[in-house]
Design a protein around this nucleic acid. Structure first.
Lengths: 376, 376
DNA sequence: CTGTTAGCGCATTCAA
DNA sequence: TTGAATGCGCTAACAG
């Protein structure tokens, strides 16, 4: 219909950018009066390098003049690998994932990698599906944020999806514990955090502690429960604010009055709900009831009372995970992490790399000495 | 290294999936014994449709058997347009954007589009850069979340980037007001919300009201200030929790005691900071000081006291914006919105479409009758 | 209705 | 070193 789109190619001097269609490498090559291959080489340092001052400069200049931006799709197709990575989270709205995402995007940006983000809304099927699409897309890798399900059925299929992706050169890194996956991972020390939380409460004299827990199918929950140890009253509910309210209300109702002097919520969202439940049940925090959360999301300090919680370095975890992913393909700096647990042996197929992140209890206003403790 | 885990895929016929490289359309075509074009047609309903029971089924079956997933890059290259859309936000961590992102991803998922998300960290340059990359990529469009800067310098360059993108067929939709941009937009009624907030406070007897404002360069801020009207003490600071604390502290210090009986923060993040500042200044909320926020982010109800704020239907706005973007290229349903202000004339170049979203004041515990009002 | 045939923009092998 | 040629996986005219 129109030939106005292609004539811009061979016009050495004063031509302006074509009105339609992007500038292609071919155009740049023509403008610089070199071959396509040469242009590609100087612009994307393909194959063997070369400088050849004169030529290289001419190409650079031409590219700049024309406002050349390479077409990622063409590149991806030609070299069978794109420069995007996928970031799969459960829910963008959850501050937990938002923090991780921020870190990840930050690290990605530094490497000129684009991030495709998807939310699974906690549906494992979507996670698998998305992984497949990333694979088909030749994505450089995928970041799986959020603890995996321990349901063997889905986790098996997920494992297959991961394997398929990996086999084709994609790298998969998990943030948070994954049941089985033989993939790189960045994990917070959940059990230790839970241990710290309980120790803190016991040091304050609390003996009757309730646990506002998320679904036992989540590995994260399991680890936290494990760190907590035995002898606590536990109620499971959704890993959300509502779930926290619900579980806490149930716990409080089952143990009226001083039956329970403290509550440990397995994440801050649930803690927020627990705080609300305590309020509605007429329990003052921390006078009548101490409450501890987990994660230290941004809003934790703004709750009232300010929440004592276990802090996870979410953002750093996101950054580190992305770095791990990106250094998988090409050899960037090994970058020693907070505590690199098992490093890959230099051998051919890199084995699993795991980076552990220590966590730390942040004491604020929601915990205090147990009422009964004073008399002890 | 180990094949112990991959045998899961069932293979009716004798062929096993190739160990390396993804399954291609060509392979599917061969397996189904049809031509490449035919396979493409049934699998991607390219060009004119066709069903032809027998053939179509054979192709479908073959695709399924082989586990075919089309290569988005090849498709993008061939049809000169990809099926990804960009979502540009200031900060993933900000619940405001998270809510919008959720809505957008939801709508995108329904249409099978992938979302590339990027955070600009409030740097306009990054926004422009990212737009350029999306353009080079042949992205279907871009969603610009977050009010634009009114700085003529950057906004001019942004406009150029938008124009360039648009000219090549990409659609750009803004969420929130943009100074100039002649693009589709989904906007909350900021001025009305501000009006409601002030009216609410005045009805409660407040006469001396302070405004905890964000940077006047943000259009959103301007609109809210405009809706607020005159006669208020305003202090500007960052559009963050810290900024809110800072501005509120300043305001409170400048008007000791009953100088100010209420504060309106121009977003909930600032409101959270203002609440903290009030607490630190020894002002009880709402007894001594009423506080109103803006946005109604998820945490607003968990602040203490629970925040009275202007609710924006963030998630819906995100969904609607994505829908607007997606219905730009192909003709999907016009879908009447909450209040379609100006619809595009059916003519060739669609003109700007704007969808206004009404907002509503949510009264909670942070506002009460002005102390002095009782004696009036 | 189905198959053939060119490219899309780029990386790369192979000659020169 | 540099250039010409081939193909990545798929779509979209064209034929038949």
């Amino acid at each position: 219909m129109d030939e106005q789109r292609s004539r811009a190619a061979e016009v050495p001097a004063g031509r302006v950018r074509p009105v339609t269609g992007a500038v292609t490498l071919k155009q740049v090559a023509a403008e610089a009066e070199v071959s396509l291959a040469t242009a590609s080489r100087v612009l994307h340092r393909s194959g063997g390098r070369e400088v050849r001052g004169a030529l290289a400069e001419r190409v650079q200049a031409a590219a700049e003049r024309l406002g050349y931006v390479s077409n990622p799709h063409a590149q991806a197709l030609a070299r069978a690998r794109s420069s995007t990575v996928g970031l799969i989270v459960h829910d963008v709205t959850d501050p937990y994932f938002a923090a991780i995402a921020t870190g990840a995007m930050h690290a990605a940006h530094a490497d000129g990698v684009m991030v495709m983000m998807a939310a699974t809304f906690r549906d494992p099927e979507l996670e698998i599906d998305y992984l497949g699409r990333l694979r088909a897309q030749g994505a450089r890798g995928a970041l799986l944020a959020g603890s995996g399900s321990t349901d063997p059925a889905v986790s098996g299929r997920l494992a297959d999806a991961i394997t398929a992706f990996t086999r084709e050169g994609g790298r998969v890194t998990a943030i948070g514990a994954r049941p089985d996956a033989h993939i790189d991972a960045v994990v917070p020390d959940n059990t230790d955090g839970a241990r710290q939380a309980r120790a803190h409460l016991e040091a304050l004299g609390h003996r009757r502690i309730g646990v506002v827990s998320g679904p036992g199918t989540l590995l994260t929950v399991r680890q936290r429960l494990e760190g907590l140890g035995d002898g606590l009253r536990t109620v499971e509910a959704d890993f959300t604010r509502e779930g926290g309210y619900e579980a806490a209300a149930k716990l409080l109702a089952a143990h009226p009055d001083g039956g329970l002097t403290a509550l440990i919520a397995l994440n801050d969202l649930m803690a927020a709900g627990a705080l609300a439940a305590a309020r509605d049940a007429g329990r003052r925090v921390p006078e009548d009831l101490s409450v501890v959360g987990f994660d230290d999301l941004p809003f934790a300090a703004d709750l009232s009372p300010a929440l004592t919680t276990v802090r996870l370095p979410l953002r750093q975890m996101g950054e580190r995970a992305m770095a791990l992913l990106l250094t998988g393909s090409d050899g960037a700096s090994p970058a020693a992490g907070p505590s690199a647990a098992s490093a890959a042996e230099p051998g051919a197929a890199a084995s699993r790399r795991t980076v552990d992140f220590p966590v730390e209890l942040v004491v604020r206003a929601s915990t205090a000495e147990a009422a009964g403790a004073r008399t002890t």
